[in-house]
Design a protein around this nucleic acid. Structure first.
Lengths: 145, 145
DNA sequence: ATACATGCAAAACATTTGCATAAGA
DNA sequence: TCTTATGCAAATGTTTTGCATGTAT
């Protein structure tokens, strides 16, 4: 895995290249997303940004998240019964394991996805571009209760 | 696969058992869901129900769909950027292949899911109860354009 | 007869959008 | 300076809810 600080620099360079402006709000949102492995929601990012920039608006979070999604720098995770969550660490499709009790999300190691994808392409004629694989269950912590 | 008429009877019996009432609206909604393999949206079910029962309300569709979901008789599919769709044919988790151009959904044959599930349970300690696997791509028809 | 379902309208909720103002470049 | 981003409020779209009325049992 790439160092977060290095990745931050690269993204900033990419933003500059495409003449997007580097604002304090964008920097704050970016840093939070790059450093969170708990797949935060927009609301959660908002909460964290407001600590340092209390006047920031929710709309700005939404707009920035949208921009970063377009640039391929974050991945959007749509849950079955919850608000959207975002992953700035691994902005490419990968499986998630979601606790239905406490909403905790982890990234399990999973093989087979490539095989499944080409299997599907062969049998359906579809050109598969991405996928979304979510497992729902009870995490070890919640099983104890 | 089970005959639709037989399954309809079974579901009606189940509803009666749990003292839910058999109304014309519920019958209509049930029949539509059991006979659709194109994963209709609530709006689409609404459109079809209104042909025979023009005074039916959207709220009733939502309430009935919710009930059938609770009873485990239909599966809810949440798309990445669209409205919810429902599958009354196969009301258990299974993969979907979704065209990002025309929103067509088909059910590809896929192996490995059981292996993946137990692999994940072993490595994470989670008790996996269900999953959601969606592949996104371009269907053969849309590739031609 | 009596509880439950329906249909309407309003509410709820996350997300998006328009626009005047602020601020990077 | 000039264009883009921000922040506010209003709009949007889907889904849910409350309640009076209708209806299955």
């Amino acid at each position: 895995m790439e160092d977060t600080a290095v990745r931050l620099e690269k993204i900033i360079a990419k933003l500059r290249e495409q003449s997007f402006r580097i604002t304090p709000q964008r920097m704050a949102i970016l840093k939070i997303l790059l450093n969170s492995s708990d797949h935060p929601s927009v609301e959660e990012v908002y909460r964290q940004v407001k600590v340092d920039f209390p006047t920031t608006s929710l709309a700005t979070i939404y707009k920035t998240v949208h921009l970063l999604k377009e640039l391929g720098e974050i991945l959007e995770i749509r849950l079955a019964a919850d608000r959207n969550r975002y992953d700035g660490k691994r902005p490419y499709p990968h499986p998630h394991l979601i606790c239905t009790e406490c909403s905790n999300i982890i990234d399990p190691e999973v093989g087979f996805i490539e095989q499944i994808t080409s299997e599907i392409e062969d049998s359906s004629g579809y050109q598969v571009l991405s996928h979304q694989l979510e497992f729902f269950g009870i995490c070890p912590n919640c099983q104890k209760r």
